[in-house]
Design a protein around this nucleic acid. Structure first.
Lengths: 212, 212
DNA sequence: GTCTATAAAAGGATAGAC
DNA sequence: GTCTATCCTTTTATAGAC
């Protein structure tokens, strides 16, 4: 076994001659595109350009392969914290920028594909759902809550419970556009459409968090 | 074939001696619990207490059975319109009541199970996702938008775009509690927890829609 | 480690008797 | 309409050669 599940999650450089990496990439494509049940080990081996036995040499079973792939993707798709507070900056613009980046990320094909699979398999693989939640939504929530707390202390807005406010902000963002996207009723939207949703969400959020 | 797909969606009385009805009930349980891929025709036949051939006599193929079941459930789980406007009533209380009923419904096990399956299969069965969206979220949105429009005309609140406001209301409701529920991280919450979410959502919504 | 070949089981769908 | 028995394909997983 040239690569452990832990090594996948970390940021090892991809090596095109590494069959382990080829299997990981192929399995990610197949699982995220077709879901767990509809993905066969034959299809994964073919996609990776290796024999099925090689897949079994690296990951002993289908479940183990699935868990390794999904856990890796959960962490991979989370962008770093882009919210830096500094005195006198335009906080509304900062929120808009952050919201725009967040929405573009979760509306993109890799994120929706991952979420669909995790939700679908959350009964059979409860651990994966927990990993996803911590690596994605909960982490993003922590980022924003920290920023909102600074704004609250500076008196820019009223957010005595920053965690709760952050959750509400994300709820507003994850509105009808995201809902329809999850159901595969729309393609990934372009930046202007996202901009419109962000504008309404930020306005409503600030109205509900006006100081005093 | 004793029952067509259309008959399932309508409100025919269940007949315990009707094998067609037994198949429908069994298939609903199996599909919603295990998803499409993991559900076998053998398992459905066994759950219904009939032979596999009987299942095939009623529904020619697995896909047809799945579509009939999901379409039926999409309509079955939608509650009727409970929003009646009348002059001088407490609109905030009405909104709270409506929101509470809506949240309790979508957090309950049958709704989350249905949504998980529809999302998971939205790539393979785009039609089902569209049916779900129209029968569920879109219909609820129409109900609320009609009510908000009356409030707007009465000057109780400012909602010049009632459809858009309704979507925002549902986005606030479908917050972190619903998100964690979808990922199977929590059990269906009790009424008080739902009450707390409703309170915060309604407050934020009204703050963002204050008249003038 | 990697491949070809093969077991062993499960699943979708059908035939034929009643 | 319903059941039992069966066909054929797919799928997970393993044996054994190189």
């Amino acid at each position: 076994m040239s690569k452990t599940a832990a090594a996948i999650a970390s940021g090892d450089k991809p090596d095109p001659t590494d069959k382990g990496q080829a299997i990981v990439d192929a399995a990610a494509r197949v699982f995220l595109e077709q879901g767990y049940g509809a993905s066969s080990m034959d299809a994964i081996a073919a996609e990776a350009g290796v024999s099925k036995q090689t897949v079994y040499s690296h990951f002993g079973a289908k479940e183990a392969l699935f868990e390794a792939i999904i856990q890796g993707k959960c962490r991979e798709l989370m962008p770093p914290d882009s919210l830096k507070w500094s005195a006198g900056q335009d906080h509304e613009k900062t929120l808009r920028l952050f919201a725009h980046g967040f929405l573009m990320t979760i509306l993109a094909a890799p994120s929706t594909a991952l979420f669909r699979v995790v939700v679908a398999e959350s009964v059979r693989f409860p651990e994966l759902a927990a990993v996803f939640y911590r690596a994605g939504p909960a982490t993003a929530c922590d980022y924003l809550a920290g920023y909102l707390d600074k704004l609250h202390q500076a008196g820019t807005l009223s957010a005595p419970e920053p965690k709760e406010s952050a959750r509400q902000f994300f709820a507003l963002l994850r509105g009808d556009l995201y809902f329809r996207r999850l159901l595969n009723l729309t393609s990934p939207p372009k930046s202007p459409e996202v901009e419109a949703v962000v504008g309404k969400a930020v306005s409503a959020f600030l109205a509900a968090h006006a100081p005093e």
